[in-house]
Write a protein that binds this DNA or RNA. Sequence first.
RNA 1: GGUGGCGUGUCCGAGCGGCCGAAGGAGCACGCCUCGAAAGCGUGUGACGUGGCAACACGUCCGUGGGUUCAAAUCCCACCGCCACCGCCA
Length: 417
Amino acid sequence: MIDLKLLRDDPERVRASQRARGDDPALVDALLAADEARRTAVSYADNLRAEQKAVSQSVRGASPEERPAVLERAKQLSTEVKEAEVAQTEADAALRVAHLAVPNVIAGAPPGGEADFVVLEHVGDVPSYDFPVRDHLDIGTLLSAIDTERGAKVSGSRFAFLTGDGALLELALINLAMAQATAAGLIPVIAPALVRPEAMEGTGFLGAHAAEVYKLENDDLYLVGTSEVPLAAYHSGEVLEKLPLRYAGYSSCFRREAGSHGKDTRGIIRVHQFEKVEMFSYVDPAAAEAEHQRLLEWEKQFLTLLELPYRVIDVAAGDLGSSAARKFDIEAWLPSQERWLELTSTSNCTDFQARRLGIRMRGEKGPQAAATLNGTLCAVGRTIAVLLEVHQQADGSVHVPKALQPFLGGRTELRPA
RNA sequence: GGUGGCGUGUCCGAGCGGCCGAAGGAGCACGCCUCGAAAGCGUGUGACGUGGCAACACGUCCGUGGGUUCAAAUCCCACCGCCACCGCCA
């Protein structure tokens, strides 16, 4: 939810943000009107309540003669207050709906839609191979590391078994990511993958993404698509005494992939269940931009450790989630398809997400909304896919990056049996 | 899954349907005392909303949501959570 004070002071800035996103600026004016209507309703009800309270108090002190009249007046006020409160509740609800409809105010993101991203930098050279390149599923099959056929047999399409070196590689990546995060001072967390509706709603995943989310109807719980959800809800409703707070959360992630029929159907690039280590920061809003850069640096560091070439893009306003003010994606080179593939994503949500979740910090003038930021450290399945492809060798073996070797028993390559 | 108990401010903890935003502690902050500290003494110490430049005023909040009443932390109902015991179980 955006800051209503900002909205009142500078509505044009919010309208401009809407235009940059390709969203409707009229939502801003609807919100302004709802805010105004609510304040009117609150004032009216407040005044009535004050009067009712006073009259109610005087019931005790009233003499027997005047008592019936006072009680009569009190009853009448009671009815009026109830009506005023209904009106206030309705105005509150209307404001909330209008409030939720306005996404975060963008901060520095390039205008335009999905195709209008800006490439900020390239790191490493796009690899070339003097042998026919295999894709990750072929390599994974040769290594007996990935089994999508049995994944489909047991669980359906977009599921896979990781076996042998595939399973070990997954654990190694998680351990490397956690080791890096811990060395950087982040608090390691293993988070629940099942959350209550409030957590899902509070983080904004039941809005545009609702169709992507698995729900357990019998238990009123949701499977998280990212540990951003439990990590953000972790401090919901709290006033945080000392910031920054930084977490590295590991969890399984579940996505229905409802809108991606026919897309990335081969291998494990897009599956319903994958493992991920996610970074999450709570900071003073004044420090949010610097924190965003810090998260990006950690993401780059991890890919550098894996010896993967990549590029960093500044995602355009129209392609941001509703909570994000700015987002950087890192895309790694996928040799089999000769294209860039999104491996990580880091968003600065400023105080937008925190306001909805009631996450506050001690500010100059008392508690105020904190800023939250998230960033992928390692989306394991996809990273395995890219790793196998980039580091493949002519004979079907795969080079193991130096940093990963200690987590794979010192092995320097993976070979078909 | 069953039975019982409990949810009050940063924490502990009291609270007769009106005089309770809430006793009393602790903690914390500031001041006095001290060479300095501890102890002691004194003062202060929630959030949110609306109006106001501000001091401040009014309103809301005693797990959440309903209900009864002129009036609810206090009575009733539902839900959520916590604790204990039993059952089951990786």
